[in-house]
């Protein structure tokens, strides 16, 4: 179980997160929605300390980090318990698809190379890239790169995978293949927190929706409630455009 308590973050005078509380149960898929600038990506990046929160507490099961005075060791441990899929994929450009997946296994988890290779090949097959093991990121399409990114995250066997707008940099034809992979791993019961603008996908794959605006959680609940009967006027407004577009499907 992942618990965020009072996460606050400012960039200079700009208060981006104003004390966020969030609980994610094991195996849950949480989608964070909200307009641009609402702080959803910053929140996600705080969870693995790519952004340093100014205050609050992050706990995963019985391990917790006090954001006011985090130990270096704790930040490292937090990162080892989480994995992230980036909007811009951020694959290691000088490593092949297989090496990208193996890197964390060999360097962080200290697995023998042979075993890492076996796991890497398995995972790449799972995301449909069995024939691209030796391709460099520059030889792959955006959708393929993002699927390698997902395999790289899966390899670490993390407590939670954080998805930061995983399809925002893709052209519409490639969005489907990436969402299909995320959907597939969601079904396996891996805990995920997804920041996305794909409303249809969020509604369909998430068990829990969080709607954010202005650095605060405006409303949260099961997708049925949020999409069909939101309590807050702002949520209704934001979702209006998407709910009317019921033709959306993948």
């Amino acid at each position: 179980m992942i618990k965020l308590r009072g996460i606050a973050k400012s960039f200079g005078k700009q208060e981006v997160l104003k004390g966020i509380d969030l609980t994610v149960e094991k195996g849950e898929v949480v989608a964070i929605l909200g307009p641009s600038g609402s702080g959803k990506t910053t929140l996600l990046r705080c969870i693995n300390y790519l952004e340093k929160p100014n205050a609050g507490e992050i706990s995963i099961d019985d391990f917790s980090v006090n954001c006011r005075k985090p130990a270096k060791k704790d930040i490292h441990l937090l990162r080892r318990k989480t994995a992230m899929v980036f909007q811009q994929y951020n694959l290691f450009r000088h490593k092949t698809a297989l090496e990208n997946v193996m890197e964390g296994l060999v360097v962080v988890k200290k697995l023998p190379k042979e075993e890492a290779r076996r796991i890497g090949a398995e995972l790449l097959e799972k995301v449909g890239l069995a024939d691209k093991l030796d391709a460099y990121p520059s030889q792959l399409s955006g959708g393929q790169q993002q699927r390698v990114g997902i395999a790289r995250a899966l390899a670490l066997n993390p407590e939670v995978i954080l998805f930061d707008e995983p399809t925002s940099a893709l052209d519409p034809e490639l969005v489907g293949e990436v969402l299909a992979v995320i959907r597939k791993i969601a079904r396996e019961g891996i805990t995920m927190i997804i920041v996305t603008h794909e409303m249809g996908f969020a509604q369909d794959v998430a068990n829990h929706i969080v709607f954010m605006e202005g650095g605060l959680v405006v409303e949260e609940g099961p997708p049925k409630v949020i999409f069909q009967a939101p309590k807050e006027e702002r949520t209704r407004q934001f979702l209006a455009r998407y709910t009317s577009d019921s033709a959306y499907s993948i």
Binding site: N48, R79, F86, Q88, N90, F92, G104, V108, R152, A153
Partner: peptide, 15 residues
């Protein structure tokens, strides 16, 4: 080198 490279390395648990 893109900043994302370092972030990705941190994200997979590298020091």
């Amino acid at each position: 080198v893109n900043k994302g490279q370092l972030e990705a390395a941190h994200a997979i648990g590298m020091t």
